[in-house]
Simulated assay, not measured.
Amino acid sequence: MELFISDLDGTLLNGNAEVTEFTRDTLNRLMAKGLNFTAATARTLASAGKILSGLDLKLPVILMNGVLIYDMAEKKYVKINSLSRKLCGLIISLSKGLGLEPFMYSVSDNQLSTRYERLISPAMKSFYNERREKYYKSFTQVSDLSRYIDNVIYFTFIAEKEKLVPLYDALKEN
């Protein structure tokens, strides 16, 4: 049995981050004839789900670089690879010491939550606004991320490389 998996950005999607009508119709026709096809992406369900909604996917999709596996037909996460509470605490502590502010993602009760403390740069504000406006993604501002470290799956840091390298160096053994 053959399996075909496609990335989204730069592969399956056009320049407007959309599946074209031709691609959608072709894939749906092939899947109806038995093609085993799914997608793998760094995106969350909020954006990937909207993009893939016109495809009759029978196989689960790989989200957030493999952190999550989601069954589009059953509308549920079938695999969640969460980080340990200890590692989350370390990441939050290190980020504060380095003056970095992350977006922290967690999954509970089949819902993805994104929390943050502060938007400290134009790039963070742009990331936040684009996802809220284009994909209707929900963000929750909290006073202390360390109070929400259960079921954490992902952190996103947006900063200049020279600010991120010390965090990378401190975490690479973990």
Rank of each mutant, 00 (worst) to 15 (best):
F4I: 13
S113R: 15
K58V: 07
L112T: 15
Y128V: 11
D71E: 13
M104N: 04
V67C: 01
M31T: 11
M31D: 01
E101G: 03
N151C: 03
S84M: 08
A32D: 13
F127R: 12
L87C: 01
I69Q: 03
S47E: 13
E18H: 02
N110E: 15
Y116I: 09
V142T: 06
Y70Q: 00
S93M: 05
L94W: 02
L45G: 00
R43W: 00
D109N: 15
F155G: 04
E2H: 10
Y128S: 10
P60N: 05
L63P: 06
T41G: 05
D109W: 03
L52V: 08
L45R: 11
R147H: 07
N81G: 02
L119C: 06
I153T: 11
S106E: 06
L30P: 01
V165H: 04
I92V: 09
K50C: 00
T41P: 02
N14S: 01
S93R: 11
E101H: 13
A42S: 15
Q111M: 15
Y116L: 07
F4W: 10
S53A: 14
A46L: 05
N129F: 12
F157L: 02
Y136N: 13
N65T: 09
L112S: 11
K137M: 15
L68T: 05
N81T: 09
L45K: 11
L35F: 12
S138R: 07
K50F: 01
S82N: 14
L57W: 00
L57K: 00
M124E: 15
S146D: 12
Y116F: 15
K75I: 07
L145N: 05
T38Y: 11
T156R: 07
L164Y: 09
L8D: 00
A48W: 11
L164V: 04
L112I: 14
F103H: 09
Y116K: 07
N174V: 02
D9C: 01
T20D: 03
N129H: 15
S126E: 14
Y154N: 13
F139Y: 13
L90G: 05
